[in-house]
Design a binder for these strands. Sequence first.
DNA 1: CATGAATGAGGTTTCATTCAT
DNA 2: AATGAATGAAACCTCATTCAT
Lengths: 204, 204, 204, 204
Amino acid sequence: MAVLLSRKERDRQLRRSDILKAAEHLFALKGYYKATIRDIAREAQYASGTVYLHFKDKEALYFALLEEKLKNLLSIVKGKIGQAKDARNKIKILVQESLVFFERNQDFFRIFISEDNELFSERKILKSSTGLQMEKYTTSLLKEAQEEGVVSRDFDVGQLTDVFSSLTKTIILKWLQKKDGKNDNLCDLSDTILRLFFNGASNK
Amino acid sequence: MAVLLSRKERDRQLRRSDILKAAEHLFALKGYYKATIRDIAREAQYASGTVYLHFKDKEALYFALLEEKLKNLLSIVKGKIGQAKDARNKIKILVQESLVFFERNQDFFRIFISEDNELFSERKILKSSTGLQMEKYTTSLLKEAQEEGVVSRDFDVGQLTDVFSSLTKTIILKWLQKKDGKNDNLCDLSDTILRLFFNGASNK
Amino acid sequence: MAVLLSRKERDRQLRRSDILKAAEHLFALKGYYKATIRDIAREAQYASGTVYLHFKDKEALYFALLEEKLKNLLSIVKGKIGQAKDARNKIKILVQESLVFFERNQDFFRIFISEDNELFSERKILKSSTGLQMEKYTTSLLKEAQEEGVVSRDFDVGQLTDVFSSLTKTIILKWLQKKDGKNDNLCDLSDTILRLFFNGASNK
Amino acid sequence: MAVLLSRKERDRQLRRSDILKAAEHLFALKGYYKATIRDIAREAQYASGTVYLHFKDKEALYFALLEEKLKNLLSIVKGKIGQAKDARNKIKILVQESLVFFERNQDFFRIFISEDNELFSERKILKSSTGLQMEKYTTSLLKEAQEEGVVSRDFDVGQLTDVFSSLTKTIILKWLQKKDGKNDNLCDLSDTILRLFFNGASNK
DNA sequence: CATGAATGAGGTTTCATTCAT
DNA sequence: AATGAATGAAACCTCATTCAT
């Protein structure tokens, strides 16, 4: 019985996952408003109604997607960082792992970056609780860096967090837009980001 | 006769302007999709149809708004920069004037920053020709800075332009989100931006 | 004073006529629904409002046009027929003059033929009183022809009238659709029409 | 399974048919432009959106209607004509069956006859491919009649086709307009049509 | 559970008509 | 009289969401 339930549950998760994958693709391709539930359901090979068995409404689907992926990224990052000792190295790992992750999840990046700036009332920056966690985690690393003196204490940590994040996103976005056939590795850009950031935020 | 015509034309521009102002407010408040033409018309105290006497359709209204404001900003910036001699100062002025402008045009900033990241197919980043001009202009200043040695030549200028813009936007956005009653001047943040950027992009 | 008034009146008629001409062109080109008052006014070089100084509404303009032209055709036909003696000749003249008229007024013909079949409630076949007169006149000629024995009395005259009219229109329409560069004269087709009709409606 | 599918499909066709019937009625009553999708949906007892599950847009609905009915008429006619031997009899059957059909489908006739004369750009006389087939079929019968000598070769077959069709339509239209309570059978008029046509188009 | 037809609110846009200038 | 900006009703169509099967 436990087995049966767990299989059932596993199946359920699979379907949910199918839908999330389709949503990721379509939201990235067309944006939140132009991507229809029908599009998404069809791409996932389900009927529209099925989507509603897993998500309350379109917005919930959207946020679940954000949540899921961010949780994934955060856990990867936290895992890898465990080993590092000083803040500089931790931040280095954060950047590198983010680049690796986004290179593999370009659709998600498109959604992520556009969500990013939605300060509009409706699609709120609820910043999916994991988004907030991510932010807090970054902030804590930057605080550490300030304490270790590798980043100046003159700056407001909140501000630094935003600058750091947007810097990373900007570089990724630029890479995504270029992507001439060359297909240079995104992760090669971690040095650029780190140099810009650490120099920028240094004690002078 | 000339007077009559010019009054007519002036009135026309006033009405157009009413609509643009309402659009600015509503696009900023609700975003492109949730802001309806009816909302905008009502806020401008006109009937829906009136909007279409001035703009072909919703998109045209949106882009006209972008264009109008950006042209304004660009001309201010270019005007003020005329006086400056070295690249560092020019860029300083660019930042300062942008901050002044966006402090006065916060609604527009909200639209601007969200447009910015729309890589989606439909509402294209055609970056309203003036948007492109603005970008080119910034790039030219950064090139100058590279030539003058105040910014490292290691970086790709395109990349630098993006970084510079997103840095500025990020700082503004952060300020906009905080804005606790204090109401600190946005323009006071120009030093933060410049320090982060010039240190970041320095030769080491 | 009389002169002054009459000049005023003449001007008024000229403007009315301008509008009717534009309406004729646009109704022919796009049909009643797709032709807008604005289109028509613009083509006539007036403002939309001016149209309403001459016609109560769009429908009134449409019917005035029908009326005007049909009155014209009817008076031409009646004038020419005065001379003829027997019904056959009268009908021959009717056909010939109609062809000449429609060759010169092809736009109007397009409108006329489409109106023709509108039995819909709204754009009623009020058949502009002149349309009715025209019909009665034709009927009277056909009655005469029946009395003179050149057309069989077996047929209902109303029916014959309709058949005669639609026959004429059909031939004209066909000519209009072909009109390969050749530009053959439409009036050359009168024999075809008359032959088809008189044979068709003969006593055997 | 086959049964299940076929029931679904059958239901679907029924709904489609409901809508077509309502459209037929309303287009006949008010004409293409004044009949609204809402009207049609309401008459068919569906919501507006439902119409769009079956037809891409208003025009598609209109043409589907035309197509459906014409296909029906054409197949009936072709079926009955199979038996006949000479052209005269074939044409007789064509007329008779058309009359029977239109007597039963008066709403459709109203649409058909009005469509007929739309030479306007938009609602094209693409004459729904079946419309063209119908025309070609008629033409072929008339050619046969010419070859058999029962219709004069002096006439252009295209012209004859048009004359024949409009003659038939005219007689039906007249009948439809009269229809005093008497309710005489429309099909009784086939002799009138045939006599008018064959005499008219005879060798003299 | 899954389906997908049905719903209907609501958006954009057009255009006949009015009316202040 | 002439203008043409303004109006606002009303049309078409989309799509998130529900619910009977």
